[in-house]
Write a protein that binds this DNA or RNA. Structure first.
Length: 885
RNA sequence: GGUCGUGUAGCUCAGUGGGAGAGCACCUCGUUGACAUCGAGGGGGUCACAAGUUCAAUCCUUGUCACGACCACCA
């Protein structure tokens, strides 16, 4: 056998295995166990502009664990990768690049040329993030890879649009929307960031017609007065009641508008008087609807003022604000200016101040779909994990607003609505160049706008499986793979994406698109701060992989991931789990030379040594637990369970206890031990494979039988009722406690661990006594015991000794060689205090008649047993202590 | 203002109606063969605070305080 290096070096190993898996088609859906249903995950498609960050690393680690786990369990697994064209994000990026490198705007190029540029950009950079996904081990089926602008998803978009259009659920309407004057497009509410801005409160006088009175109105946006079509007060406001119904005169424009009453007006805020600009304010728009006010648009598409604001026409809103204030001052109608901090909406993409504007847009009436999407979660047809996230979902879906789906961009799916050049008929069609559906005229004009990005990603669960093309659906296995099992994502797109998929998927198929939604945490830095470029605390997954290996990173993310909201990722933690990966490597180095002695995986339970029974029993429980926890999305508990077993049970005890056997001359015992060591280790690497795929595949090559294939498609370990040995586990636990106590005692009195000493054990547990006797060789080996005696507690304890008491065994060491008596006495006193407290606590319970009456029988029994133990322990400590006073 | 969440060891966080846990950090000891990316042992907590329910509360209920996230509003 060749030399195995002392430390595991992941470089080289990782790429090698990924390539092998892919080449051998391991990621393709194959039903290895026909009795199990398919298991499908749809990968949240990254933006073409995307770059791998820790969020992806976590998101994908979780999905890959689930897919690999289910694949090994025999399910036909499919993990579908994809990519999103990300309308605004991509267009903005390419626009910037064009301007920076060539000084060109998209208008210089025209729509067609500009789109060519975006496609070229996509070809060049689009693969970047996908290659990064391979580095983190994603076992997705790349043959299913789908881009939202591919022909298939485009057909899905058209089909869905046309169906809803014909149903009357898609309509065009004037509505107040967020307008980004830089991108010159409508953007959705969720694409608006509200930022705190230091602004001013301008108090302005509005005269009241046929009256001497003036109304003082406070506003932060005086330039919008050109668009005012009313002044509103609260209906219950005594101060202004008499003015309701009269007319107010807007300064500068001298236009008369009605004074109306509306409950939205807050009497406490500002002056209690509100100028109403339905064309450029969301609340005013609603007031305007209620009062049937005229809507006056005072802005151009680029955000400058238009002809409806003659005095400031052509100026930007910022310039216009300044000018308006000057004009008001000149006209003596500006009362005062106050400092005022308030929130102002900014475009996420361009950072421009968002201007609310009324414009003609396309909308989906989501009312019915949203209702259904709520009941589907209420009935748990789709379950959120952790459950609490459903509240976030409900808060959106219970109050659905019309979904504005049109965007004034070029990059995206053009809206399939056409207007006949001849008869003016407007209709939707899935065809590229349809004839007028009314007069059959061939000249029709398509709506220039494109659809919101989420329109196509909302259809992804369907379109990635070939919908609406029947042939492709058959080829891709739509009926088998829809709906999928779980969606794994972050909370930030519950509304954007999860809700949309729920509505759209259900609308088309009448089935929810996935049965679970696992919402994972946000990865933050070790201090809990969000990772951001400006803070300089961004961790790059690829760098981490380089430094510590992909498996260590994946294990760290998994072990940090349960039902929590934040993961504070400390590099020291990753290093710790890197060490764990290395530990496994070294455990393998230990067993490697003995593998040739191992004959077969089959373990004959009848003739097993009690240590072997113990480890098999422990392993069996681990298998049970891990399987349960993965199914529950408790990656933290699953990983911790494996970690504890490997470290504490397998390495620290089983391997240590095996050294003597393996160095002996008893060939049959050696072979059997090698068998068990190998069996357990094979199970361990299989258990770990979903989390740490690379090292486990590497080790598997040395562990597999000749007829066995790659680990990635091995059968996941299953609970085996034959491997339950309660008595051996019980004995072993006590044995470990005795050994630990001896080591502890030696340490307390400053005897070197190496030094061999005599030890006397006293126990009334006959089974344990005989077990300890049987294990005297191991006691000698592991606790450095020279000679020992095991007696029952009726025997007088040695006077000149130091001692330690456990619940079942008292341990005595002779005083010869004891260096630090004082320390021992101090410690013994502490033990006494503890035992006293423990005893009093349970004693109190037992003396309480109410406890005896009400507590369940097994609890009473347990407490009684404890009381006995504590009392024994206390007595023996006190007895021993007397010798030192 | 609304919703959700958090408060447990120095740090990061699990956990349970009946004996307070892990990792890291810290202290002591230990390198000849699996592993110093290691081993053995150890110290350390009023489970935020208060009241209530209960035989029994770190856990359930209510309130208080502190912190966080999201949503809405901010004329």
């Amino acid at each position: 056998m060749q030399e195995i290096p002392k430390t595991y070096d992941p470089s080289g190993v990782e790429d090698k295995w990924y390539k092998t898996w892919e080449e051998q088609g391991c990621f393709k859906p194959v039903a290895r166990d026909k009795t199990k249903p398919p298991y499908v995950i749809l990968m949240p498609p990254p933006n073409v502009t995307g770059k791998l960050h820790m969020g992806h690393a976590l998101d994908h680690t979780v999905q890959d664990i689930l897919i690999r786990f289910k694949r090994m369990q025999g399910h036909e697994t499919l993990w579908i990768p994809g990519q999103d064209h990300a309308g605004i994000a991509t267009q903005a990026k390419v626009e910037q690049k064009l301007f920076k490198e060539q000084g060109l705007s998209k208008h210089d190029l025209g729509r067609e040329k500009f789109l060519e540029h975006i496609w070229a950009w996509k070809e060049e950079y689009g693969d970047h993030i996908l290659n990064q996904f391979k580095k983190i081990g994603d076992s997705c089926d790349w043959d299913y890879f789908t881009f939202t602008m591919d022909e298939g998803p485009s057909d899905a978009v058209k089909k869905f649009f046309v169906d809803l259009f014909d149903e009357g659920l898609i309509y065009q309407s004037d509505y107040i929307i967020n307008w980004d004057p830089v991108l010159q497009s409508a953007i959705s509410d969720a694409e608006v960031d509200h930022k705190e801005v230091q602004g001013k409160f301008y108090h302005i006088h509005y005269r009241v017609k046929e009256s001497n009175q003036v109304l003082e109105i406070a506003t932060t946006r005086p330039e919008t007065l050109f668009g005012d079509t009313a002044v509103a007060v609260n209906p219950n406001d005594d101060r202004f009641e008499h003015l309701i119904g009269k007319m107010a005169i807007i300064p500068l424009v001298e236009r008369e508008v009605p004074i109306i009453a509306d409950p939205h007006v807050d009497m406490e805020v500002g002056t209690g008087c509100l100028k109403v600009t339905p064309g450029h304010d969301f609340n005013d728009y609603d007031i305007g609807k209620r009062a049937d006010l005229e809507i006056l648009n005072i802005l151009n598409k680029d955000g400058t003022l238009n002809e409806n604001a003659p005095q400031v026409q052509g100026l930007t809103t910022k310039e216009a604000r300044k000018k308006t204030v000057e004009l008001l001052e000149t006209a003596n109608q500006l009362v005062k200016v106050e400092d005022h901090t308030h929130q102002v909406g900014h475009s996420q993409r361009s950072d421009a101040v968002v201007e609310p504007m009324v414009s003609k847009q396309w909308f989906i009436n989501t009312e019915e779909m949203a209702k259904r999407s709520v009941t589907d979660v209420e009935s748990e047809a789709m379950k959120f994990v952790p459950k609490g996230w459903e509240n976030t979902y409900f808060s959106y879906q219970r109050n659905p607003r019309p979904w504005c789906i049109s965007r004034q961009l070029w990059w995206g799916h053009q809206i399939p609505v056409f207007t006949c050049n001849s008869c003016g008929h407007q209709f939707a069609s899935t065809e590229q160049k349809p004839h007028c559906s009314k007069c059959s005229h061939t000249e029709v004009t398509q709506d220039p706008d494109v659809l919101d990005t989420w329109f196509s990603s909302g259809l992804f669960p369907l379109s990635t499986l070939g919908w609406p093309n029947p042939e492709k659906m058959k080829q891709k296995g739509f009926d088998r793979f829809y709906p999928s099992n779980v969606l794994v994502t972050g909370f930030d797109i519950i509304f954007f994406w999860v809700a949309r998929m729920m509505m759209m998927g259900t609308k088309v198929t009448n089935k929810v698109p996935f049965s679970d939604t696992y919402i994972h945490a946000i990865v933050r830095d070790k201090e809990g701060k969000k990772m951001s470029k400006s803070l300089g605390n961004v961790m790059d997954p690829l760098e981490l992989i380089q430094e510590t290996g992909c498996d260590a990173m994946r294990f760290t993310l998994a072990v940090s991931s349960g039902y929590n909201r934040n993961i504070n990722l400390d590099p020291a933690k990753i290093e710790g789990y890197r060490n764990f990966v290395n530990k496994i490597w070294n455990a393998f180095r230990f067993i490697a030379p003995h593998l040739e002695n191992a004959t077969d995986e089959a373990i004959e339970t009848a003739d097993l040594h009690h240590h072997e029974k113990w480890i098999l029993s422990e392993l069996n429980e681990v298998i049970k637990e891990v399987t349960l926890k993965f199914d529950d999305y408790r990656f933290d508990e699953a990983c911790n369970t494996i970690y504890q077993f490997v470290y504490e049970k397998y390495c620290s005890w089983f391997i240590e206890l095996s050294k003597g056997v393996l160095n002996s001359n008893n060939e049959s015992l050696k072979a059997q031990r090698a068998n068990v060591l190998r069996f357990c280790f094979r199970q361990i690497v299989k258990l770990l494979h979903p989390v740490t795929p690379f090292i486990t595949e590497e080790l598997w090559q040395f562990l597999k039988r000749e007829d066995e294939d790659l680990i990635v498609i091995q059968k996941y370990p299953e609970y085996n009722p034959d491997h339950t040995f309660t008595e051996d586990v019980d004995n072993m636990e006590k044995f470990i406690e005795v050994i630990t106590s001896i080591r502890n005692l030696k340490n307390t009195v400053n005897i070197s661990p190496k030094e061999e000493i005599e030890v006397r054990l006293f126990t009334d547990d006959e089974k344990l006594a005989s077990y300890l006797y049987k294990s005297r060789g191991f006691l000698k080996e592991l606790a450095r015991v020279k000679a020992g005696k095991i007696k029952d507690k009726s025997i007088e304890r040695p006077a000149k000794s130091v001692m330690k008491a456990t619940a079942h065994t008292e341990i005595f060491l002779p005083l010869d060689g004891v260096i630090d008596i004082a320390n021992f006495v101090e410690k013994l006193k502490k033990d006494k205090d503890k035992a006293e407290k423990d005893f009093q606590k349970v004693e109190k319970k037992l003396k309480n008649p109410k406890f005896m009456e009400n507590a369940p029988e097994d609890i009473v029994k347990k407490v009684k047993a404890e009381a006995h133990e504590f009392e024994e322990k206390l007595k023996s400590i006190e007895h021993s202590l007397e010798n030192f006073q």
